[in-house]
Design a protein around this nucleic acid. Structure first.
Lengths: 206, 206
DNA sequence: GTTAGAACTAGTCAATGTCAAGTAGACAAT
DNA sequence: ATTGTCTACTTGACATTGACTAGTTCTAAC
């Protein structure tokens, strides 16, 4: 027979199916049963592995953060200048949000995921750490006296806001029939402004 | 009898009920029927005024933007210094997000609202304009040469990101048992960094 | 008073998340 | 080989949901 009773790695298959469903129909009309259907299992199979819908989506969000962490690590590799590194992180971040739209949509949706999930937290912390470390290096290199947590928060907020608000910005540009610059360009501008802002807090002004 | 057949202003009553439902049960388990129940009308009454769920939520989002516009206008009133004005806008923005949590949750959810809705667009544009105008004044006052749309995008993104990511930041602080500063303080820090960043693009350096 | 139409209700339908109960296979102990 | 006990699933049922169709009730213009 074609189908084994034991699937092999159903949790992963369900995650993939979930990504497909979100990509095709959007999170608004996401359905556990549709996910099960695509994975070729019964409609209650997902519950067995993830408990409920929140469990599946939390697992997806965790996967998203883990992937983000990898992407961010890869982005700074081989880049020496701290500012370039920061910019590379920003670009990688928004690109990850684009290439993994389904994951990105879920990752910061407090109403859909279980924020207390330990795996989710550690995965998020790892991604956070990459940015955090990058800023430490930058501040040491340029002798900047800014609280790292504040700086990390600003950088992350700006990138996250950019991703969320991009459709709105695009509309604003359309209304004035001005073309919206590619998002990577926006990231570079943001990075430039923010780094400039940090430089206002140098210990010994040049 | 106590109830008139015609409600008087059912659309408004439904919006209020919707806010209550979102506040109490969250957007995840939001239900049109529950809204109707709370408003004391049949389960199909909302459809008559808003078409469908997306219609109701779009109306809520529009209301949110209109309120935000009022709040932002009020925040800058009587504040003369452009930087103080920008800071006041930021504080008002995050406070509006807190005091009107239900609206804020809906306003930027592309999957729940109809982005093509004209009322929603104009309401959003008005709120955007307040920030836009504030930055124009700032740049004129300080002779800064930065594209206003880029600047607006950065300010808005940072504030929006702060609201969305605040729970995450709080968790990061908890994990190191460091207290999270009040969000208004974060806004002021962000504003400071960002304005500093803009100042790096003065036409005639001081 | 009649009538047109707006405001709202009632009933129905397929679809969904979750729960309870059952079944199929793996695997170790006897 | 058989038993027993896991895990990995399935089947069936239930209440709830959004949306649709077809009515019903009230308002107001004439």
């Amino acid at each position: 027979m074609a189908h084994k009773y034991h699937h092999g790695d159903l949790p992963n298959a369900l995650r993939c199916a979930a990504v497909d469903v979100i990509d095709e129909r959007g999170l608004g009309s996401f359905s556990l049963r549709e996910v099960a259907r695509r994975a070729g299992v019964s409609h209650t199979a997902p519950a067995h592995h993830f408990g409920d819908m929140q469990g599946l989506l939390t697992s997806l969000a965790t996967e998203g953060f883990e992937h983000l962490h990898q992407v961010l690590k890869a982005a700074v590799e081989g880049v020496d200048d701290p500012v370039d590194r920061l910019n590379a992180l920003g670009v990688a971040y928004v690109r990850a949000g684009r290439t993994h739209k389904a994951h990105a949509e879920v990752m910061f949706r407090a109403d859909l995921v279980d924020g207390d999930d330990v795996d989710l937290q550690t995965a998020g912390l790892h991604a956070y750490g990459t940015l955090y470390d990058c800023l430490i290096e930058l501040f040491e290199a340029e002798d900047i006296d800014v609280d790292i947590d504040d700086a990390t928060a600003l950088c992350w907020s700006a990138m996250q806001g950019l991703i969320v608000l991009e459709p709105k910005f695009e509309r604003m540009c359309d209304l004035r029939s001005a073309p919206m610059p590619p998002i990577e360009e926006m990231v570079s501008k943001f990075t430039d402004f923010i780094v400039n802002g940090f430089r206002g807090h140098r210990r010994q002004p040049t």
